[in-house]
Nucleic acid binder design. Structure first.
Length: 565
RNA sequence: GCGCUGUUAGCUCAAUUGGAUAGAGCAUCUGACUUCGGAUCAGAAGGUUAGAGGUUCGAGUCCUCUACGGCGCACCA
């Protein structure tokens, strides 16, 4: 249990006894300013307001009747009714001793594990993944890792766009070209060319548009030749996706595209009509809810075709009934908020009992504050982004480590490039658009992956220097202020992980890891580790624990570590 | 028009969900190296949190209005 949680227990018990009416919030928080203390509670001010009492008097009572755990200083009252607590160095040492023996590093387990589907990434078949997919892919992956770590049963689902109307135009051009074989390493580019060609033709020539529609209808009716072509498109795309996911270290439990729900769609619409949730309007089938919008939600077009809303409804049914999901989390960009409001509302009215959540994020912008594009104005391809990250990391590596043999350089550049990209993408609050620059991404200092990795590497190098095979696990004695700060920060890891998961915002964890890396660097400046025999094992233990927490924290963000920079 | 969302230091972003004197990095300036790895550390400077009201013991955070931006609103996904 963290220091905070220990104190929290005591304060909450006191609050529940004397003020049973008040909500059981977390009342204990770390002080923003250490001069006030290590932890504070503002409970007295809240309770005083509710009961019309004097907040200072109540704070005095709380401080007196609610003593901190063993080894803490006597609490003090300050301001308008804050009670401040300070932990003694021995108590810090004891807490760190408990932490180093905890395989979970202070990360709590949820009392009631849920079966959670995380739906993320979801690229379209026959198109290269682009920069618009990166936030969903990384954020979804991190959320899945966080929820798994807290004890939930997580199902990572890639809901591929493999059944849209774009296939009519693509088939049209592909077949007109004589159904040529696709080159393994250029398949995606070839498919994009065919689509572009088919699209242009269909837009300019109504007869071609009719043909494209006919191609789509043939595919959806199960025409064997079209099916075969479509499967080829899917397989070529899958290979493209696989390479990118491998480099990003992202995996899925289930890759199940829209096509998998094709057969279920008529029944979904029929059910909604039968339950009188949906109605026929102007030949289409729609769902209405004036509290959401005046315009209705379309689930079947007037020509009988289904939409992605219908597919999503079918997917909810599958996930709740077949996968037994208690909760489904969708990770998509902000523009789909209205769609998900409609989707969730409709599913609930139709009897869905699972919790449905839309975790949305903003756009990646270029330096001009417009959505990030490549030089020719098309969306920036993800593969180009990854390659450039690696290349730039390689240039920096060579300049920083000219002594490094060329063999190891490439793998190191790849790791640093991916780590930097992943960290930079997850650092800003997901609800905001963010401005992407290479300078920020691969900077050596500031809140970046290299800075944190550097701290980790130094925990490893000091170990190598010590001649030991692994970090010792000795009782920790905090002797220096920067050492004590490091220890207390380590004890907050569990809180940071919990907050990031509960908020569905991994950037909270980035902030914590940056603080920890910085505090480790300060400790490192101030505290000789190997030179002082009396403190050597204690400090090596602290160093080892710092490394473990940095590694575990980065791991929850999907970022691997390395032993040497 | 309706709805969602945003505006914090010159720039890019934080702020533990209503708590104490709003913090970092970059850029600028000043220091610390024959280093337990300097991809580091110490320090200076930089703010009417877009503006105006309101609620509160307390507001960057909640409410109302205004200005400016991004996005979405029936047959794409």
């Amino acid at each position: 249990m963290s220091l905070r949680a220990e104190l929290e227990k005591s304060v909450t018990a006191w609050a529940a006894t004397h003020f049973p009416g008040l909500p059981a919030e977390p009342w204990v928080r770390p002080c923003a300013d250490e001069r006030h203390g290590h932890f504070q509670t503002h409970f007295a001010m809240v309770a005083a307001k509710a009961q019309r009492l004097n907040p200072r008097d109540l704070a005095e009572r709380l401080a007196k009747e609610c003593p901190p755990p063993e080894g803490w200083e006597k609490p003090t009252v300050a301001g308008g009714g804050f009670v401040n607590y300070r932990v003694g160095p021995e108590a810090v040492g004891r807490a760190v001793d408990a932490l180093r023996q905890d395989p979970n590093l202070g990360i709590p387990r949820v009392p009631k594990p849920e079966s959670v589907v995380v739906d993320f990434s979801s690229p379209n078949i026959a198109k290269a993944m682009h920069v618009g997919h990166i936030r969903s892919t990384l954020l979804g992956d991190s959320l899945a890792r966080l929820l798994t770590r807290l004890g939930h049963r997580v199902n990572r689902v890639n809901h591929l766009g493999d059944w849209g109307t774009q296939f009519g135009k693509l088939l049209l051009a592909y077949r007109a070209a004589g159904r040529p074989p696709l080159q393994p390493d250029q398949a995606i580019d070839q498919l994009e060319e065919f689509y572009k060609k088919g699209h242009q033709e269909a837009e300019s020539d109504p007869a071609k548009m009719d043909q494209a529609r006919a191609e789509l209808a043939a595919l959806q009716d199960g025409n064997p030749e079209r099916r075969k072509d479509w499967r080829l498109f899917c397989e070529s795309s899958a290979e493209h996706f696989r390479k990118i996911y491998e480099r990003l270290g992202v995996r899925f439990d289930s890759i199940r595209g829209e096509s998998a729900y094709h057969e279920d769609l008529p029944k979904v619409v029929q059910d909604l009509l039968q339950k009188q949730i949906a109605e026929v309007s102007q030949g289409a089938v729609v769902v209405r809810n004036r509290t959401i919008a005046e315009e209705p939600y379309l689930i079947r077009k007037s020509d009988g075709a289904f939409l992605y809303a219908t597919t999503d409804l079918a997917a909810i049914q599958y996930r709740t009934e077949e996968l037994k999901a208690d909760r489904i989390i969708y990770v998509t960009d902000a523009r789909q908020q209205l769609h998900f409001r409609w989707l969730f509302d409709t599913a609930r009215r139709a009897g869905c009992r699972a919790e449905l959540e839309h975790v949305w994020f903003g756009t990646v912008l270029g330096p001009d504050r417009k959505p990030l594009k490549s030089r020719d104005g098309t969306p920036l391809k993800l593969i180009d982004l990854l390659n450039e990250a690696k290349e730039r990391a390689g240039v920096i590596l060579k300049s920083k480590r000219p002594d490094l043999p060329p063999e190891g350089l490439e793998a190191k550049a790849e790791l640093l490039g991916m780590a930097s990209l992943k960290y930079a993408d997850q650092l800003p609050n997901r609800n905001l658009d963010y401005v992407f620059t290479w300078e920020k991404l691969l900077a050596f200092d500031g809140n970046t992956a290299p800075y944190i990795l550097n701290a980790y590497v130094r925990t490893r190098s000091i170990l190598r220097k010590s001649g030991l095979a692994k970090h010792p696990c000795a009782p920790v004695r905090v002797a220096h202020p920067s050492e004590e700060r490091l220890a207390r920060l380590l004890l907050r890891f569990g809180d940071a992980v919990e907050l990031a998961a509960a908020d569905r915002k991994p950037h909270h964890l980035c902030g914590y890891l940056y603080d920890l890396a910085g505090q480790y660097h300060r400790f490192f400046e101030a505290c000789p580790v190997l030179q002082l025999p009396a403190l050597r094992d204690s400090r090596l233990t602290l160093v080892g624990l710092t490394g473990d927490v940095l590694k575990e924290g980065l791991g929850l963000l999907g970022i691997p570590t390395l032993e040497e920079m």
